[in-house]
Design a protein around this nucleic acid. Structure first.
Lengths: 118, 118
DNA sequence: TCTTTATTTAAGTAATTGCTTAAATACAAT
DNA sequence: ATTGTATTTAAGCAATTACTTAAATAAAGA
């Protein structure tokens, strides 16, 4: 079911495009999922704060971001589930930090945010 | 209304964080909005295709992505509204292309997707 | 053991997303 | 003028998102 009936439609181009997409479909999926998680103001702020402070707990983040603890906890869970964060429990407190290996495509942005405040 | 009553909560750190966020609040907003748009499989595919092919029309994209034309059109509108795309009408056809200036934070990802298929 | 503190989980909800189909718009060609 | 092609816009809808409040879990300290 083609939508383009134009003469000028370049069948070779369309085939090339379809093949290219198939080759990278896995990467596209992974990157889209990371960008989707980072494409939220609260979560991007969390990334930035963890990038500056190394590690923070939900309750400190809730103070800084002026949001309820459960709201923060749900954002952290989403980031953790995607393996973008590590967490480490020390007594009652859980410290979250960035998994830089999994988050590497976000690094340029985080670095640029660091620059701003200098 | 502080949530952290912990002794170990470092007030200086929390103040520093709050200030940092305020300084970059505009950048955070802008970047989050771009990542939000790119953090969708269909739109990321459109970015990738436009990056490889220079320009494409909604109807070719609809063929390649196997989606209805209105569905594609709505994605393009969202990207165009955010100024991430240019559009140029030549007779009946509208050609979309990437506004690289506004999309520059996405470039590293687009480049890495290009590498994959080599 | 009982209370406090830090955190997560669950349930409910309003807003947003991304599609669908149908209709509207705009331009070209006959 | 009329038909065909490319595109957008609109309305409707199911699924998802991001919060809320309340309850559950877990560890520490009195």
């Amino acid at each position: 079911m083609e939508n383009c009936i134009r003469e000028c439609a370049d069948k070779n181009q369309l085939n090339r495009c379809a093949e290219s997409l198939e080759e990278i479909s896995l990467e596209i999926q992974q990157i889209a999922s990371i960008l989707n998680i980072a494409g939220n103001e609260v979560r991007l702020k969390i990334f930035h704060l963890l990038n500056e402070e190394q590690e923070m707990c939900p309750c400190d983040l809730s103070d800084v971001l002026q949001m309820t603890v459960p709201a923060i906890s749900q954002h952290l869970k989403k980031m953790k589930t995607a393996k973008l964060l590590f967490s480490e429990k020390r007594s009652q407190t859980i410290y979250y930090s960035i998994n830089y290996e999994e988050s590497k495509i976000l690094l340029p942005m985080l670095e640029s945010l660091k620059q701003v405040s200098v």
